[in-house]
Amino acid sequence: MKSFDYNRAASSADAAAHAKAGATIIAGGTNLLDLMKLEVMSPDSLVDINRLDLKEISTTDDGGLRIGALVTNSDLAAHETVRRDYEVLSRALLAGASGQLRNKATTGGNLLQRTRCGYFYDPAMPCNKREPGSGCQAMEGFNRILAILGTSEHCIATHPSDMAVAMMALDAEVEIETADGSTRTVALDDLYVLPGDTPHIETILQPGDLITAVILPRSKPATHLYRKVRDRSSYAFALVSVAAVVSVEGGKIASAKLAFGGLAPKPWRNRAVEDALIGQEPSMSLFDKAADILLADAQGHGANDFKIPLARRTLKAVLRSATETAQ
């Protein structure tokens, strides 16, 4: 690991000032320190935000939930309100990582974790994300775990989070404090940017921006499901995952919020898929039509071709379970 300066932030303004001056923010550190050991990331300076007062989960004025950026994945998964009203989020968190990692990993850090693409993780390999312009070996290499949607000719990395997939289906917003002290809120969908020809840029965050909370809108009655398909049944990243928040009224799908993990450089949501379902009677042919829309632009790179039919089957299975339960 390269050497670095270490500072402990006294306040969020202090953290932002350090970050604006070039420091990398460290919270749980479970991904950042791993990357620093491999020298995939080599910050000159770290600012530790763990002592900041961002560990609260509270109800918002309109009945939603405000989750402080330093709430651990464990505490969030076990929180009474999350288990009762945002089940898909508890389920996604519990499907991710291990007990030890969930105790350390934070809400903000989970959103900003980096891809687990083997080429990104290996400094001996070219990687457009790690070293812009150096090329991408994954395109024709070991790409079994990599993306089929939202990719570019420069990068096919996936976003590895389960938590963010559930939050995407829950219409989450991200609260960001900027270095000038102001606060802005963006939809989680808008936090991430697709790789295009700048795969090293993953979010809209600017130096000095600090995620302070994730805000979930008030929960409405619906069936919540999170289904994760992976190579072993615990402690593995998703090959495909589907988060579904679905309700059925009078035999027809009244609402359907669907987000996907393991398929794209960001937690993936496609409103056209949902629009095709709403107002319709649940049926396997309808679910096939939804999968057609989801996968219309899907592109495999050889070893990950299997994700296209796997995503179809997983979506159909989830929709069948969700609509059967909801009726």
């Binding site: 749980g28 550190g29 030890q100 990692l101 350390k104």
Partner: peptide
């Protein structure tokens, strides 16, 4: 709470 001591400073 249990954690991995290798992944923290």
């Amino acid at each position: 709470r249990r954690i991995n001591s290798c992944l923290t400073l």
